[in-house]
Design a protein around this nucleic acid. Structure first.
Lengths: 207, 207, 207, 207
DNA sequence: TATGAATGAGCGTTCATTCAT
DNA sequence: CATGAATGAACGCTCATTCAT
């Protein structure tokens, strides 16, 4: 069951991009680690840029599947909404935890690359934001949330909260690749969703 | 009143780093735009890396001054706390708005650089997080916030929220350099601080 | 029968190092003369320093083979010893004559280079000195030479004599690269070995 | 009694050329160590090359004075000749010992420099050789040495012997700048002059 | 499919030298 | 005499990409 060379290259490239960064990773590093010749790389991919875009496109697809499959369609009350969000966040965090390299590329190391690279990342975030916006909109229509007339902005804040928290949780304050998360997924989910809906004050905050 | 060459280089370099990214900016670009010879650059800076670190260190210092000077010391009730936070956020957003290039470097384009560059960014975020944590801790001690035993994590979520929102507000969903913010500072501050303390549900959310 | 590119580069580099000196020879000179691209140089060698060290190591090896193979093992009397030395010197001078560029690098032009370069040269001389010391020591043990209790020093004087004479003979007083030796090898060998054993006074010197 | 700036620069430059080599020594190193500004250097010297040539010309002059003043004019017999040579060698070694930096430049580090630099060194050696040749010629005319019809060559061998021995004695086998000579001047002189006149066999060698 | 030698434009950096003050 | 900022040509090296086999 020999590994397909193309997949091997994709895998090795992702690992190196995540470890050393896109720019610092040479094509020669990739082929060396994959155990193939330099030319072989260019049989499968047009350029270094193409492979990273392929990686990110694939990653975005998988990530969006998670986000999209996350919400239950029929919320009833706030508790349902919170539970639903918790389920989504749990899925998201699990996915992130199982795809550390991808998350590094999407959330951290990719930002400094070329225009196209940055756009790919932005598009991913926009897509996530859109999903969140849809959900918020629906909740508003169900009169579960007050209509503050800035759904997009709220979705964007939520996206910032989630992506920032994920990257901080997975890689620690200094973005160390081998950082071991100190909080359990459940604790993070609990706190994050609480924050999502109730902010710092929380449900029982004195007003 | 000839501009000091060193400052000129710093300014030009920041602009180019923000516009094209650190890697894509050549030293020759910087000196060309500054109108000095290649060697002049190396009279003032040891390397391309040094100048970007200098820029970021200086930027971090100014940014932290804003964050640090932001909070009032003697909050009384929740309204005070919220007002205090609003004042801070307003200062932060004004600063960001007036230092777009710096924010690009700190929040967007810097991430893909060398190890040292990324560390410089991480350290900045850590410093902000620390300020936020201090404030949350104080609010807890004043019994204005419930002690959820995860102050650090809360501070980190807050940092994610704020930095993400700022970069999204200033540069739009696609991180365009010339993006014109569509929301006024006051609106952003209102919504962000509301979110900070009350989450999506908000003060008057039906439970 | 295409020449191996690596060997071609080594050969061209040696010639240029000998002609213009290590520092004055640019990598671009080497590749231009070899008719390959700049990058090709770095396919075969890590750096300009590496190639010169490789050249010198190879040269030292060949030189030491000559020195080592030079002496007969079983000298009987002084005449044998003198003849043996003549054979060695003849071999040495032939080698030097056939490897002018190498000798230039080892004896003349290399000295001003980097630390490693100079060390490589010193090590070569030390190795030669050691061979000479062994031979002197053996001659003492055979009671063919008086034990003056300074074998090392004698070997060093001999090394100075031989290397100095070779470089002076091959390249003339002004170290000209295209100098034509004015004395035949046999004459030089005769006089040098006479000097080696009998000094200025010579065998028949009046005392 | 402030040190003359020009002399200071000469002194500092010699030290650095000897320590780091001509090429590795930057003009900025010299002025930094001398505590003057970069421009000052060029008030006193036209170029980096000029200063090293000045240094070497001055050094050669002093060295030749020693060599020239070395021989007694009226040798009588071989013992006189040997004694006379011993006196010269002792002077030479004392001079070398007191001018280590100069000797490094003349005998070791200078060789790899530019054409002019190498010529300056060659000329020095030629001048020494000439002095030696004169002395040998005179000894032949006094019938103290056999006329082997190769006075120049003999002088050259003698020069090789002397210069090689000096550099090896002062700086050790690896040309270390801080090497401490292990033999006393007198021992070196004894052995060197013995070798000069009698070779390895020596006066009492069995023939 | 796969190899790996070859390419060459381009970059960061160096440093001897100049010159206005 | 002295300063030190400014110059700019030049060099070693990189690395994504190509191509003959």
């Amino acid at each position: 069951m020999k590994k397909d060379t193309r997949d091997l290259l994709l895998e090795v490239a992702l690992e190196l991009f995540a470890t050393k960064g896109y720019h610092a990773t040479k094509v020669s590093d990739v082929v060396k680690k994959a155990g193939v010749a330099q030319g072989t790389f260019y049989w499968y991919f047009e350029s270094k840029e193409e492979i990273v875009l392929k990686i990110m496109a694939e990653g975005r697809k998988k990530l969006l599947e998670v986000v999209h499959s996350g919400y239950r369609k029929e919320e009833g009350n706030i508790r349902d909404m919170v539970d639903s969000s918790k389920r989504l966040m749990k899925k998201l965090l699990s996915f992130a935890s199982n795809n550390r390299n991808l998350m590094i590329l999407l959330l951290l190391k990719g930002q400094g690359g070329d225009e196209k690279l940055r756009n790919a990342i932005s598009e991913t975030l926009v897509a996530i934001e859109k999903e969140f916006a849809n959900n918020i909109q629906r909740a508003i229509e169900l009169q579960m949330l007050e209509d503050r007339d800035c759904v997009e902005f709220q979705a964007q804040m939520l996206t910032s909260l989630v992506t920032g928290t994920i990257s901080r949780w997975l890689f620690g304050p200094m973005h160390e690749l081998n950082y071991q998360p100190s909080l359990s997924i459940d604790k993070v989910v609990d706190e994050m969703v609480r924050y999502e809906f109730f902010g710092l004050i929380g449900q029982g905050g004195r007003q």
